[in-house]
Design a protein around this nucleic acid. Structure first.
Length: 281
DNA sequence: TATCCTTTGAAGATT
DNA sequence: AATCTTCAAAGGATA
């Protein structure tokens, strides 16, 4: 059922016009998060610092030649929405427009031209953000009125039920159990995740949609439609999030949660991409 | 009930 | 070093 929905939506899109400007992007820019990566030996600046510095660090010379690739989950429609360029002796590089939606998005929800990049007055202060994870005054461990940081997720009750016969457990098992009982500290949110959190409700209201996958597609498109300055706000927020996360959980590493979610079935993924490719040819 | 879907970006893992 | 993989959020759909 889900697949059928996706397929029919895709078939619809085959007749959709590309987003305005797609296919004729004159000078594709590298994504900010890539452009913001300092070359080796250069102290890394945040986007905010970069854009506000009187002498901004130039982007690495080869940055325009980096391939901007779409995630594998998205069907490859590069033939429709990408520009490929290159010069003699160089590998061509492909800069892709965000994938066409798999869901039939209404023009008012899905297309770039309806979301012109907001123009902020130079030097205007960034708006105040109210994302709960950034209001952490009382979540410092040990504080009497400590409210758990949203990154902390308590273990489920199921794990506790499973542990009632601990007398029978081996030492290794109880050690693993202890690990499982530890509250999970989640990854700090990146710039796009923060943007999604803030804008999701708005998109739901505007587009009368509930399905997150569809909403996320819209948000992805809106994200690309933002000006660099607008995006910079969220990169800066994300940088602060990471900083705060490091302070709160000094020993934490993304490795701690690596592999905890069940891996997606590779076979299933391949099957779906094969199915999709049938529709392209 | 667990996982998938879908997005971008950060970071760990692998080649 | 470059590329691949996983996980952050969200909630309806699906197995």
């Amino acid at each position: 059922m889900y697949k059928e929905t996706v397929y029919s939506a895709f078939n619809l899109l085959m007749h959709y016009p590309p987003p305005s400007g797609a296919g004729q992007h004159p000078q594709p820019q590298p994504p900010l998060h890539k452009a913001n990566q300092a070359p080796h030996g250069v102290p890394q600046l945040s986007l905010y610092e970069h854009f506000n510095s009187p002498h901004p660090t130039p982007a690495p010379a080869d940055i325009s030649q980096k391939q901007v690739h779409r995630p594998l989950q998205t069907p490859d429609l590069s033939g429709f929405y990408s520009l490929t360029s290159g010069s003699m002796g160089q590998l061509p590089h492909t800069v892709s427009w965000p994938s066409p939606p798999l869901y039939p998005l209404s023009p008012s929800c899905g297309y770039r031209q309806h979301f012109p990049a907001p123009t902020a007055a130079p030097g205007a202060p960034y708006p105040r953000f109210t994302h709960p994870s950034l209001m952490l005054g009382s979540s410092v461990p040990g504080h009497p009125a400590a409210i758990p940081h949203p990154a902390i997720v308590p273990p489920s009750g199921k794990q506790e039920l499973q542990s009632f016969d601990r007398n029978l457990k081996t030492q290794a098992e109880s050690k693993a159990e202890k690990e499982a009982k530890k509250p999970t500290i989640k990854k700090p949110l990146n710039a796009f995740m923060l943007y999604m959190k803030e804008m999701r409700a708005k998109v739901i209201a505007e587009c009368t949609l509930k399905e997150s996958a569809a909403i996320n597609q819209i948000l992805g498109r809106r994200w690309h439609a933002l000006s660099r300055e607008e995006q910079a706000k969220y990169y800066e927020l994300a940088r602060k999030e990471r900083q705060l996360h490091m302070q709160l959980y000094p020993g934490w590493s993304a490795r701690d949660n690596y592999g905890k979610k069940k891996r997606r079935s590779r076979e299933k993924h391949q099957e779906s991409t094969t199915d999709n490719s049938l529709h392209y040819s």
